[in-house]
Simulated scan of single mutants.
Amino acid sequence: MILPDKYISNSESLLGISSFVLSVLKAKTLPIETIWKDFQKKYIHTMKLKNPPTYQKFILTINFMYIAGMVNYSENGMIFNENIKAHH
């Protein structure tokens, strides 16, 4: 589930979904709701993903990204890309 394998495609793994989340987040600092809405617009509503994640899996991906050091959050709960200097 975390990494793709012969049964889980890249776009269904947490690592793969993380890359899509980072492409939505870029250098912005956003609340989780906005990231989800932008993710839906870019990948789910346009049917770019064969098996799009549920909101629950999206939240699990954000948690994975935090643990892996990909994202962090500010004191007021705004999420930002840990590897890009964002204004937070």
Score class of each variant (00 low, 15 high):
residue 8 I to K: 12
residue 37 K to V: 10
residue 29 T to V: 11
residue 78 M to Y: 07
residue 59 I to P: 00
residue 48 K to E: 15
residue 36 W to R: 08
residue 70 M to F: 15
residue 5 D to W: 00
residue 54 T to D: 05
residue 39 F to Y: 15
residue 21 V to C: 10
residue 52 P to D: 04
residue 49 L to P: 00
residue 37 K to D: 14
residue 8 I to N: 10
residue 78 M to H: 06
residue 50 K to E: 14
residue 31 P to K: 13
residue 28 K to R: 13
residue 34 T to L: 15
residue 22 L to M: 15
residue 35 I to E: 05
residue 61 T to H: 03
residue 68 A to Y: 10
residue 77 G to Q: 04
residue 20 F to A: 07
residue 43 Y to M: 13
residue 27 A to E: 14
residue 7 Y to K: 15
residue 58 F to G: 02
residue 45 H to F: 15
residue 74 S to Q: 03
residue 3 L to D: 09
residue 69 G to P: 00
residue 33 E to M: 06
residue 76 N to I: 11
residue 4 P to A: 08
residue 73 Y to S: 06
residue 47 M to W: 07
residue 75 E to P: 03
residue 57 K to R: 11
residue 40 Q to V: 14
residue 58 F to E: 04
residue 62 I to S: 07
residue 46 T to R: 12
residue 36 W to E: 07
residue 76 N to P: 01
residue 84 I to Q: 00
residue 55 Y to E: 15
residue 8 I to M: 14
residue 59 I to E: 01
residue 9 S to N: 08
residue 34 T to K: 15
residue 7 Y to N: 15
residue 64 F to Y: 13
residue 34 T to V: 14
residue 10 N to G: 02
residue 22 L to Q: 07
residue 1 M to P: 12
residue 32 I to L: 15
residue 21 V to W: 06
residue 30 L to P: 11
residue 63 N to A: 10
residue 21 V to H: 04
residue 10 N to V: 11
residue 77 G to Y: 05
residue 31 P to M: 10
residue 48 K to D: 15
residue 68 A to Q: 11
residue 78 M to N: 07
residue 21 V to M: 10
residue 2 I to W: 06
residue 13 S to P: 08
residue 59 I to R: 01
residue 45 H to M: 08
residue 59 I to C: 05
residue 58 F to R: 02
residue 44 I to A: 03
residue 44 I to L: 06
residue 53 P to Y: 01
residue 2 I to E: 13
residue 13 S to M: 12
residue 46 T to P: 05
residue 84 I to S: 00
residue 13 S to N: 09
residue 3 L to S: 09
residue 2 I to N: 10
residue 50 K to T: 13
residue 62 I to V: 14
residue 4 P to T: 05
residue 50 K to Q: 15
residue 53 P to R: 01
residue 30 L to A: 09
residue 25 L to Q: 04
residue 8 I to P: 00
residue 75 E to M: 03
residue 85 K to V: 10
residue 83 N to R: 07
residue 39 F to I: 03
residue 38 D to K: 14
residue 52 P to I: 01
residue 65 M to H: 10
residue 41 K to H: 11
residue 18 S to H: 02
residue 84 I to W: 00
residue 44 I to D: 01
residue 41 K to C: 08
residue 12 E to G: 03
residue 65 M to S: 09
residue 12 E to C: 07
residue 56 Q to F: 02
residue 50 K to I: 14
residue 38 D to L: 14
residue 46 T to Q: 14
residue 22 L to P: 10
residue 66 Y to W: 05
residue 67 I to F: 07
residue 19 S to T: 13
residue 1 M to Q: 13
residue 18 S to E: 03
residue 69 G to N: 00
residue 26 K to S: 12
residue 33 E to Q: 11
residue 49 L to C: 01
residue 6 K to I: 08
